[in-house]
Amino acid sequence: MKGKYITDITRVPFFQTLKKKDQELIQQVTSLYPFRASEHYLSMIDWNNPNDPLKRIIFPHPEELDMTGSHDPSHEKQYTVQQGLQHKYPQTALLLLSDECGGICRFCFRKRLFMDCPRQTIRDYVPALGYIRDHPELTDVLLTGGDPLILSTTRLKNVIQEVREIDHVSIIRIGTKMLAYNPYRITEDRELVSLIQSESTPGKKIYFMAHFNHPSEISPQSIEAIRLLQQAGAVVVNQTPVIEGVNTDPAVMADLFKKLSFIGVSPYYVYQCRPTIGNRVFTVPVERSYQVMQSAFQRCSGLAKRARFIMSHCTGKIEVVGQNSTNIFMRYHQAANPDDYNTFMITQSNPQARWFDDYVPLAPSKDPTYEWSFESDLDTHRGTITF
């Protein structure tokens, strides 16, 4: 059970209880967007509860057949400098090491990696390491995918040690949901823990970017895996999108923040669910997402409310920083164009908006940037944009 994965939806006992027409509909979904889950994760689902949040995270939903959305909503292709290597922000490079995960989230923003398309993950990381060496502004390297922990520890060791030898790279991040999907990957592999212990040094840390979406995902096995990583010298933080039917109740989001803070995991980002193809059933309007987060914060101590609410847009990480009865306020937390860092954006409230593009019209250009009315008033806000 501990290390097994299921990719055939018909093997899930719950699927076998469905009516034939419902089975056929679910199989239509999996023919587009594959199914994958660990037996550990499936064992935590209350299959008698039609609204079980973990079931919603992993089990196919018929409304995924709504083809609204994009295969690449954040335009990652634009920032891909080599196969499997992205460089969008000056300090950070992304290495896509794998096109597999311990489970496939139904709301995945990179589901194109699991679909029938040319491979986009890295085959030979040597050229990518050369690129990183040639760019001294890069201080952070994010190992992602897919899930890097699906790889063997031997291969991970090769990549991590070679990245660690690059002097100007001080932070290695590992983006993973394995702490929820299959924590045994950590608890039963002492070689992996030893690798982290040797490579996460006092001056150059390894960060694990965990992906807990609901407090019920934080199992005793997850807590033990986190403890081992922390003892090995790693820093564990968490990020989650706001997902309809999973964490849109402020009490649930608050419980997630609190449980994470109790075990020493800092809430890092709360994302607006990206408008990826098939994802509309999981998204909620931007302003509702912001309100969920703010209401959750009211229930938490300071250590549990360190997350920022972010839209990971093609132009950068856009943070929603405030709202009143008529307006919503945003700023660039990260920007692909460094000139955007000082921009502060004010727009009319739009309770139906599910993405930044619903507030700002796309410019008629091949370049995915936006034509804004820009006014600079150094006595008030530096770089204020009103649109």
Score class of each variant (00 low, 15 high):
residue 239 Q to K: 08
residue 331 R to T: 10
residue 248 T to H: 11
residue 285 P to K: 04
residue 325 S to E: 14
residue 300 C to P: 03
residue 312 S to T: 12
residue 299 R to M: 15
residue 247 N to I: 03
residue 302 G to H: 08
residue 328 I to W: 01
residue 251 A to M: 11
residue 277 I to F: 09
residue 264 G to A: 04
residue 264 G to W: 01
residue 279 N to C: 11
residue 256 L to R: 03
residue 303 L to S: 08
residue 290 Y to N: 02
residue 245 G to E: 05
residue 328 I to A: 04
residue 238 N to M: 12
residue 262 F to K: 08
residue 308 R to F: 10
residue 286 V to I: 13
residue 247 N to D: 04
residue 320 V to F: 09
residue 336 A to G: 08
residue 300 C to A: 07
residue 288 R to T: 10
residue 328 I to H: 01
residue 324 N to D: 15
residue 283 T to K: 14
residue 299 R to K: 15
residue 282 F to K: 06
residue 334 Q to H: 12
residue 284 V to H: 00
residue 308 R to N: 09
residue 241 P to V: 02
residue 325 S to P: 09
residue 322 G to T: 06
residue 235 V to M: 08
residue 308 R to P: 02
residue 320 V to A: 08
residue 268 Y to D: 02
residue 332 Y to S: 05
residue 244 E to D: 11
residue 256 L to G: 03
residue 322 G to V: 06
residue 266 S to L: 15
residue 293 M to V: 13
residue 298 Q to Y: 10
residue 294 Q to D: 08
residue 333 H to M: 07
residue 314 C to E: 13
residue 326 T to L: 15
residue 243 I to E: 01
residue 234 A to V: 07
residue 327 N to P: 02
residue 263 I to D: 08
residue 315 T to W: 11
residue 245 G to W: 04
residue 282 F to W: 13
residue 290 Y to K: 04
residue 242 V to E: 00
residue 304 A to P: 04
residue 312 S to G: 07
residue 268 Y to K: 02
residue 330 M to R: 02
residue 315 T to F: 10
residue 260 L to F: 06
residue 255 D to C: 14
residue 274 R to K: 13
residue 261 S to Y: 04
residue 263 I to E: 07
residue 322 G to S: 06
residue 309 F to A: 06
residue 320 V to T: 11
residue 243 I to G: 00
residue 292 V to Y: 10
residue 251 A to D: 14
residue 338 P to A: 10
residue 236 V to N: 03
residue 267 P to I: 00
residue 311 M to I: 14
residue 289 S to K: 02
residue 296 A to W: 02
residue 332 Y to Q: 11
residue 299 R to V: 12
residue 286 V to P: 00
residue 314 C to F: 06
residue 280 R to S: 13
residue 267 P to K: 00
residue 337 N to H: 12
residue 271 Y to I: 11
residue 288 R to Q: 12
residue 279 N to Q: 09
residue 294 Q to N: 12
residue 285 P to A: 12
residue 326 T to A: 13
residue 234 A to W: 01
residue 253 M to S: 02
residue 296 A to V: 04
residue 307 A to G: 07
residue 269 Y to V: 13
residue 295 S to M: 13
residue 233 G to Q: 05
residue 271 Y to V: 05
residue 278 G to Y: 03
residue 269 Y to E: 11
residue 273 C to V: 11
residue 241 P to T: 06
residue 260 L to A: 07
residue 252 V to M: 13
residue 320 V to S: 06
residue 297 F to S: 09
residue 278 G to I: 07
residue 233 G to N: 03
residue 279 N to R: 09
residue 268 Y to C: 03
residue 274 R to S: 14
residue 282 F to H: 09
residue 241 P to Y: 02
residue 263 I to G: 08
residue 293 M to N: 05
residue 315 T to V: 15
residue 242 V to K: 00
residue 280 R to Q: 13
residue 320 V to H: 04
residue 251 A to N: 14
residue 277 I to S: 06
residue 310 I to V: 11
residue 267 P to F: 00
residue 286 V to F: 12
residue 333 H to G: 01
residue 265 V to T: 05
residue 275 P to V: 05
residue 242 V to N: 00
residue 284 V to K: 04
residue 315 T to G: 09
residue 291 Q to Y: 14
residue 302 G to C: 10
residue 334 Q to R: 12
residue 265 V to G: 02
residue 286 V to W: 05
residue 257 F to P: 01
residue 324 N to Y: 06
residue 291 Q to K: 15
residue 238 N to D: 14
residue 245 G to A: 08
residue 265 V to C: 10
residue 239 Q to S: 07
residue 232 A to P: 04
